[in-house]
């Protein structure tokens, strides 16, 4: 009954949710939601440059996201502007620059909606390989950074005094986040990427007894959202990416009703 494209969509969604859960916990703890948005918005510039320079769009997106992550890291260290102002400037200028660049490419008609809101039903075998390859790479490195990241999330100066190489860890985390954003674009689209970081992690935070548990539960909640969203999209003929986010929102709302053990 389930068509091939549906199975591929499911595999892609589950892969992305597995990675987004653990990363999302840190996005929530470190208040990096806007940072994620900025990376996601700059992905469109990557798409445009990919077409312009005739390179693989995914690789171009990764390159641009990484560049923006590194740029942000150094600009934030200068502290000339408040962090959210800086993020706003980069986020919207990258998005607009992407749109303008696309308009300049005459002989190209690309489906903008597919990039903005995702096109999970069109996921190909190569996309799947990239999602799982990059996903496992990102998760592996996150495991290495786990303890120092936790220490930094609690108190940056304390971590620094205790010998954590704060700048290096933060830069590495930003770059990994950029990588994850790039592979998530196909699934939920660049306007909705941050929701897959935030919603599952926020949904399970009250129920978690340890950071690891929260990361794991967030991944599970994300997978549930992907399954529920795809099912809804199949059943009601709604767009897949937004349906996944709606499912995640429902899961979030339902879990808020669970009474807390004291």
């Amino acid at each position: 009954m389930f068509a091939d494209f549906m199975l591929r969509a499911l595999a892609a969604g589950i892969g992305v949710a597995l990675v987004a859960g653990p990363f999302g916990t840190f996005v929530v703890w470190r208040r990096m939601a806007y940072f994620g948005d900025t990376l996601a918005h700059s992905a469109l510039l990557g798409v445009a440059l990919g077409f312009l320079l005739q390179v693989d769009p995914l690789l171009a997106v990764m390159a641009v996201c990484l560049l923006v992550a590194v740029l942000l890291f150094f600009l934030q260290r200068q502290q000339r502007l408040p962090s959210d102002t800086l993020l706003g400037i980069l986020s919207h200028s990258a998005l607009s620059l992407g749109l303008v660049t696309i308009a300049f490419i005459d002989d190209l008609r690309i489906d903008l909606l597919a990039y903005l809101f995702g096109d999970i039903l069109a996921v190909g075998g190569r996309d799947l390989v990239m999602i799982y390859l990059c996903g496992f790479f990102a998760l592996g490195l996150l495991l290495v950074l786990w303890r120092p990241l936790l220490a930094i999330s609690l108190h940056e100066d304390l971590a620094r005094v205790e010998g954590v190489r704060v700048d290096l860890v933060q830069l590495a985390f930003s770059c990994l986040l950029a990588l994850v954003v790039a592979i998530m674009m196909k699934v939920v689209g660049l306007l909705l990427i941050t929701s897959l970081f935030i919603l599952p992690a926020a949904a399970v935070r009250r129920l978690s007894r340890s950071p690891e548990q929260m990361a794991l539960l967030a991944a599970v909640a994300g997978i549930a959202a992907v399954c529920g969203g795809l099912y809804g999209s199949w059943q009601f003929d709604t767009p897949a990416g937004p349906s996944i986010v709606v499912a995640a929102t429902l899961i979030f709302a339902l879990l808020q009703l669970v009474p807390l053990r004291r």
Partner: peptide, 14 residues
Amino acid sequence: TFPLSVARFMRLTG
């Protein structure tokens, strides 16, 4: 809601 026990906190960087 930060899910961290005192024991884990003490061990974060050592």
